[in-house]
Design a binder for these strands. Structure first.
Length: 620
RNA sequence: GGUCCUAUGGAGAAGUGGCUUAACUCAUCGCCCUCUCAAGGCGACAUUCACGGGUUCGAAUCCCGUUGGGAUCACCA
């Protein structure tokens, strides 16, 4: 007659310690009343997922505000999926987002008295507990092969029964100790299963910090707790680790709700008090193919990886702020009232968390990101942008290094003032916005057809630009500059103010805004660009062509004197397709410059340095 | 398919039986301001809370059913 003890000794001959030893080695934590011990337990299988960042944010917050402990545990029991080095990376990324654990696995080292914090290094601990379970007859070795299990599943499917290893289907459960002993002696591969005493018909009450109480069927599956590779499965490791690491609050993704009965059962069988659970909703996105919501997917969605936001030049804090609005519905009002500052003072509550997974909202992220970025002065902003560019964006780095002061001045347009512009949400697309300042990016800027208002004919545009070219002078004084523009406008019959124009639109060609827009589009290639007066100054256009702003080179002159309807002068296709009814196939796009205007910026860039300082902002 | 969760506008949501002719934020649109672009100010955007029943003097709020969405059913976590 083989006893459980003998069987356990056969399987784990080296394990001599007991659960009591472990209890002593990992004593209860000495923490103030109400302190929560939370943990983030990632697998080293890749980069930090946005959902994981969300979870760890909540963990960090809950621990901090209760004066508890937040630690990281590496769950590396799946050796097949493990990606070398990703554990360290995970920690680095958390740090970038300002989430630093108090304890646990910290990448290059461990900290704390409840370790090891890497599961593969805890194998001996799991064995102690499993041996105990074996001795108590609450666990047993199972010799079924994957083929056996596959057949079992097919049989169950045919009979329309719940699939799995349970009750009468749990063949190895009924093996005698002699049989088990024999098989092990013979070197048969085995796993260890937990012997479930649950009944699928029974409902148990479970409680969740965000969902409240609900009922769920008892677990009747004899789940694997010890794999043939000698490592535990998640369920078992969770029970053991969170018990001995003295976790008070398990915060994890919603996908774990379904296995809660297993965990509850495990804790009960071990005679341990289960932690509190909080299952967080998953961040979703609408799938473009199906139109349905689905979990943010690392493979399909770039925003699923936290690194994307960093590489695109978002301030980490903006993502954190956005995630917090998902975490607590009252956060948004709070942070608005607090002018986007000191978000660490916000009190998080599980009750204010929505149960449904929110759709990731890029627009809202951008909103927070702009509000955050607008707080920096030009030098802070420039240095942040430069730090980013050096790491992730060589193009931007080149632009900044070309002339750092110029860059700072561009960034300063309408910045250091009461109601600053909010042009930038991230550093990654800055060049798309201000590329026109840089000569070597100019062709990029005018790649698309320029968005001139269709109400103006080509003749109107020529007239306006020619006048501007000849008469408008760059000025650091916005008032003078604009008066000049108005004068030109008035002469060409553009209403000097909007009221006049609105009162009698027929009497005018357009209003001064239209004229400014024509100039803006010509200079910048866009309908909205920073303050034009400053733009002109920074472009250094005043030094060319005896004070005129636009330098017409050969093609322009040629074109201005040619008839608009003749054929393809320079071999470029028409860029005016949107005005097809007027100018179909009219070749007015010359030498890579729209409208035949060659903005030959070279001299400006060569001579700019001297004039870069002292740019006035004339907004009140 | 079984089990669990869930359902308020384009998005995030407040709302727990009468205070709601449904807060607030983002987005969108409009107006105002203005000397352009912004910024700012103001306003519009769910006569209705997935649908169908019921309870009630009264329901977005409670109950039942239907439908939709999500999660989960591994020697993965």
């Amino acid at each position: 007659m083989i006893t459980n003890k003998q069987l356990a000794d056969l399987i784990f001959p080296d394990v001599t310690e007991t659960i009591d030893d472990l209890e002593k080695r990992y004593p209860l934590r000495d923490l103030p009343e109400g302190a929560q011990v939370t943990r983030f337990a990632p697998s080293p299988t890749g980069f930090l997922h946005t959902g994981s960042l969300f979870t760890s944010l909540v963990c960090r917050k809950v621990a901090s505000q209760s004066k508890g402990v937040f630690y990281v545990r590496l769950e590396d029991t799946d050796t097949k999926r493990e990606i070398a080095g990703s554990g360290e990376q995970l920690l680095d990324q958390l740090h970038v987002f300002g989430i630093d654990p108090d304890e646990g696995y910290l990448g290059n080292h461990e900290k704390g008295n409840y370790g090891p914090y890497v599961q593969s290094k805890r194998a001996h601990i799991y064995k102690i507990v499993i041996k105990h379970l074996l001795e108590e007859g609450k666990a047993y070795p199972c010799f079924c092969t994957s083929n056996d299990l596959e057949e079992l599943r097919k049989e169950q499917e045919a009979k329309k029964l719940n699939p799995g290893y349970y009750g009468e289907f749990a063949k190895c459960r009924n093996l005698s100790n002699e049989e088990k002993y024999e098989k092990i002696k013979n070197g048969e591969h085995f796993v260890i299963r937990f012997k479930s005493d649950g009944n699928h018909e029974n409902k148990i009450k479970v409680s969740d910090l965000v969902r409240g109480e609900f009922e769920i069927a008892e677990n009747d599956q004899d789940i694997v707790i010890y794999k043939s590779d000698g490592l535990p499965t998640y369920h078992f490791a969770h029970a053991v680790d969170d018990h001995f690491m003295r976790t008070t609050t398990v915060i994890r993704g919603e996908e774990w709700v379904a296995s809660l009965p297993i965990h509850v059962q495990l804790f009960r069988a071990l005679g341990w008090k289960a932690p509190k659970y909080a299952h967080l909703p998953v961040i979703m996105k609408v799938d473009e193919e199906t139109g349905n919501k689905r979990k943010l997917s690392k493979r399909k969605d770039r925003e699923a990886a936290c690194s994307y936001f960093i590489e695109d030049g978002y301030l980490p804090q903006s993502l954190i702020m956005y995630l917090m609005t998902i975490a607590n519905s009252n956060f948004e009002e709070w942070i608005l009232a607090n002018k986007f500052e000191h978000m660490e003072d916000f009190t998080f509550s599980f009750k204010k968390m929505s149960l449904e997974g929110a759709l990731f909202d890029m627009g809202k992220l951008n909103f927070f990101a702009r509000e955050l970025l607008v707080k920096y002065n030009k030098d802070e902003f420039t240095s942040l942008a430069y730090d980013y560019a050096k790491k992730y964006n060589p193009e931007l780095q080149k632009a900044i290094e070309f002339d750092k002061e110029l860059f700072a001045n561009i960034m300063n347009i309408d910045r250091e003032k009461a109601n600053p512009r909010k042009d930038y949400e991230k550093f990654g697309n800055i060049l798309d916005i201000i590329g026109f300042f840089y000569k070597d990016r100019y062709n990029e800027v005018i790649k698309e057809p320029l968005p001139f208002n269709e109400k103006f004919s080509k003749e109107d545009l020529i007239e306006a630009l020619t006048a501007i070219k000849n008469e408008l002078k760059t000025n650091t004084d916005e008032q003078i500059w604009f008066n000049d523009l108005k004068e030109i406008g008035t002469r060409l019959n553009y209403a000097a103010n909007n009221k006049d124009y609105k009162a009698n639109p027929e009497a005018y060609k357009g209003n001064i805004g239209d004229l400014a827009e024509i100039l803006r589009i010509t200079l910048t290639g866009r309908k909205n660009a920073p303050n034009l007066c400053v733009v002109m100054y920074l472009l250094g256009l005043e030094e060319t062509h005896s004070g005129s702003i636009i330098t017409p080179a050969g093609p322009m002159e040629k074109w201005l004197n040619s008839s608009p309807s003749q054929g393809d002068i320079h071999g470029f296709e028409s860029r005016w397709d949107h005005q097809a009814e007027l100018y179909t196939n009219t070749p007015i796009y010359c030498d890579g410059r729209l409208f035949g205007i060659t903005l030959d910026l070279k001299p400006f860039f060569e001579r700019r340095r001297a004039r870069l300082t002292n740019v006035k902002n004339h907004s009140k």
